[in-house]
Design a protein around this nucleic acid. Structure first.
Lengths: 343, 343
DNA sequence: TTCTCTACTGTGAACGCTCACAGAAGCACC
DNA sequence: GGTGCTTCTGTGAGCGTTCACAGTAGAGAA
């Protein structure tokens, strides 16, 4: 099935057309376009009027050709395909970053590096200078792609602490350890003492820090650590379910569990229900992230909110600063305990 | 906290460097780069060797400046912010389209038009020629943005049938009506006769077609239409829950329900459970989409699979063809009944 | 007057590529 | 030897910007 073709684009107006219309030179129009310094109010106004009249929009290719900047940035997701979009956090991050960039009038290029092949192609694309900088998000941040890009001179900001010790990659992260502490303190305040934990992947700083926070508080409180109450997962729903099952098997007297992601907590709820435990009556469950999964589960999850909107904004801010020549920076943002039904 | 800055990009090699290295002219290098017609095997080889040696990557800006193409395409999502990423279908579509484009070495620009302001800005950006074409996805496809873009001469492909009657926008869609027919036939084959429906938004062709399929089969089968068994939703989980509640109130003898999206079906399951109905023993539930929601619910949803991978591939194919000068086209892809636990 | 300074404006060159064109080389045919 | 054809190659122009530089006008000071 086909339809007749309409339209066909007209040649768009150039800076030349605007200059002629405004009765000034190209240079003046260019100056107005780029901040308007050293332009008389009269010229300024004439140019703006001409721009409105002609419907002029700058040709970014011509500009980029000479400035060397592309005025676009990449959003790089390194994650095997399946997990990629299961986690609602990626989506929120992507959405927030797109918006944050849009407010600077910078387009976002989405780059998915699931396979080694894709990864090579994308790295090549990036290092060729087709983007001015890259926002990197990877699930298990053991990934070194951010370091590699930085090594190649590309401005980079990663979401979450980088794994490489001594890595000089900029990053923005929530305060994982502090969040974990808050949650475990909350569970203690409910009178719980046999508190289990399903950790995140322990080859990632986020996973390690959340576990550290858990241990810290229990030791401080004089409850002590019981290794039977510690199992690890990989942030996926399935691993949360399996983790809770193992915990129940190893420590049937568990009266609370801190699960290091909401998605895993969803899985844990399933396992607990199947085992006949009521939440929160028999077992309190605390999640982490405050993703959409937290409100969708029954009971709704008490969790630690990661401020994804702020994280995104900071990532963009830090990246743009770096593109502007500033040094890499690390930003850690506070989390917040959100009480719902599960604990 | 700051860290010392490393690196700083070197000026990348140009076509000139490659030409010198290979002992040929710019023109010859350019020809090799663009398909290699009218180039001797000797020169071909020399150029390729030089490209490898210098690490040359084409400067897309310089190319675009002269060709007028940007060699990038936009992925436009017109949807209010909240709903945007609740629906897993958007994610799958985005992922598949990104990959389909990546295989053509075309970057995807993500554009979110939640507010009227964003929409204006993005339209301006697109019509300025910063992308060669646009893939449009909108939840309730009453949206006319695709038509507007097409009117402005921009190649466009929409996901799902466009609303505007007489619209000449290219689109790729699953066969909604046929999918609905399959599902209702399946419910009939289970011996169900009091089959309710929670429709999609009836200001969108998808919603209308699925309802039409439902009615068609019931009439064909001689069961007839009972208006009390028809309520409408908006594809959201909440509306599915509310819809199922209304159906139960109006037709307590309902023994099956066709819910026009998996997300709504999830909501319906919640409502049915609360009402004390067992699924599938008391009430069979059929969804639509085969999104991740279908396998995550308990019981897992019997549903109609929309072939999102094929839809994405077709969208990209049709769009590229259109950019290449071909006429707009409409593609309708078959759906498939996926039996799980709920019906 | 003349000089200096500031505020502004115009101009040519350049960014790295593609495209159209001209031309060379080889071959076949008259 | 001329003509035509095909296959290949090099060259100059130009895409729409920005940037550096030169230059003008007006104000204020000497």
């Amino acid at each position: 099935m086909t339809m007749s073709n309409t339209g066909g684009r007209r040649r768009p107006p150039t800076i030349h057309d605007v200059a002629r219309e405004a009765g000034v030179s190209r240079g003046t129009v260019s100056r107005v376009l780029n901040g308007g310094h050293y332009v008389s109010p009269t010229a300024q106004e004439a140019v703006n009027a001409a721009i409105r009249k002609t419907g002029y929009v700058v040709n970014r290719h011509a500009r980029s050709l000479i400035t060397g900047r592309s005025d676009s940035i990449g959003f790089l997701l390194t994650e095997p395909q399946e997990k990629l979009f299961e986690d609602p956090n990626f989506n929120v991050l992507l959405r927030c970053c797109t918006q944050a960039l849009a407010s600077h009038d910078i387009p976002l290029l989405l780059m998915l590096a699931g396979t080694e092949d894709e990864r090579r192609r994308i790295t090549r694309y990036i290092t060729a200078g087709h983007v001015d900088g890259v926002l990197v998000v990877s699930g298990h941040s053991g990934d070194l792609v951010a370091d590699e890009l930085r090594e190649a001179g590309v401005p980079v900001v990663q979401c979450g602490k980088p794994m490489g010790r001594g890595s000089k990659v900029s990053y923005v992260a929530a305060d994982d350890r502090d969040g974990a502490r808050d949650m475990v303190r909350h569970l203690l305040s409910l009178g719980r003492r046999r508190i289990g934990v399903v950790t995140g992947p322990l080859d990632s700083p986020g996973g390690v820090d959340r576990l550290a926070g858990y241990k810290e508080v229990l030791i401080e409180a004089g409850v002590g650590i019981d290794e039977r109450l510690i199992v690890s997962g990989d942030y996926s729903r399935a691993s949360g379910e399996a983790g809770a099952e193992r915990l129940l098997a190893r420590a049937p007297d568990m009266d609370a569990v801190f699960v290091a992601s909401d998605l895993m907590a969803q899985g844990a709820l399933t396992a607990l229900r199947r085992a006949g435990r009521r939440v929160p009556e028999d077992v309190s469950v605390g999640g982490f992230d405050d993703s959409t999964a937290a409100t969708e589960s029954t009971p709704a999850l008490t969790t630690i909110r990661q401020p994804y909107d702020r994280i995104s904004n900071e990532m963009v801010r830090v990246l743009l600063a770096q593109i502007g020549g500033e040094d890499p920076a690390a930003v850690i943002l506070p989390t917040e305990l959100v009480k719902r039904e599960s604990a």
